[in-house]
Design a binder for these strands. Structure first.
Lengths: 145, 145
DNA sequence: AATTTTTAAGATAAAATACTCCTTTATGCA
DNA sequence: TGCATAAAGGAGTATTTTATCTTAAAAATT
């Protein structure tokens, strides 16, 4: 059960790196990050470009350039991040993939799945990137393989 | 958030069709099913072949042949079906896809996600194909597009 | 202005997933 | 026995996702 795509994972991991591992320098170098996290530089570039276009990050070229948060990580909620990375319909899929399943004609698993999705949604809706970063530091979770 | 692959969806839908739409005839014709459910015949064949090999279905060639349940749908639990369709590691993935996340070194979302997975698991572990079929009949859910 | 460092963008390649086709084998029926 | 039917099995194609390469453009340093 892959919940989040590779691209989504990499994006999330990079932002967590920016939040938790990086000091207070504004712009984080993408090449550097790609090497530390062992993610293809060009692929990561694409993913972060997307987040820049969607207004979560800002970027700066030239020496000492890179990407930085446009919105402070304290106000980046996972819901928004996941939607930016995975698409807006992330939370709207039928568990069984049954055609026509929805509120109007719920499949046998619809309500059960809705409950679970709602839980996931609300967890994502009130945890921020900063929260995750803090937890990572606290638990000493190694982001870097 | 695609939880189940296309192949998994088709397989599940076909079995639900067999449970709920089909009369009491033993073998269900795959071509017929593929047309009714609007799934590619060849693709569906592959999927059901897999279930036959895994011992959930049996098949019969020749006129009036098709596939039938080897195990009665009353004792096919979703856990087993999903594992057969999607692979045994279905319930073992990290939500954030963080490398190294596990019981030994849980990521910040690990316990939260474990809870949700456990809920899903236990729901799947005690609902059978027959249960779903019954619900479909009761709710008059249309399997056929 | 030239050089360096970095993002931006588009084209291409590899891998995974989704889907198709064709031949073989088993079965039923005339 | 011969023909039609239906699944099994193997190989092949297409599409999507993931990843890489190549070139261009922007910005800072010298």
């Amino acid at each position: 059960m892959r919940v989040i795509s590779k691209a989504g994972e990499y994006g999330l991991r990079a932002l967590l790196y920016m939040v938790s591992e990086n000091g207070e320098q504004e712009y984080v170098n993408i090449r550097d990050m790609s090497e530390k996290l062992d993610i293809s530089f060009h692929f990561l570039t694409k993913i972060l470009q997307n987040l820049t276009q969607k207004g979560l990050l800002r970027s700066y070229r030239g020496p000492n350039g890179g990407v930085a948060f446009l919105i402070p990580p304290e106000s980046i909620y996972l819901t928004d991040l996941i939607k930016a990375l995975e698409g807006d319909d992330f939370f709207d899929k039928c568990l069984l993939g049954l055609p026509g399943c929805g509120e109007a004609q719920p499949c046998p698993m619809h309500n059960f799945w809705k409950e679970i999705k709602d839980k996931l949604k609300s967890e994502f809706a009130h945890t921020t990137l900063a929260d995750l970063g803090q937890a990572i530091r606290k638990q000493r979770f190694r982001l870097i393989p």
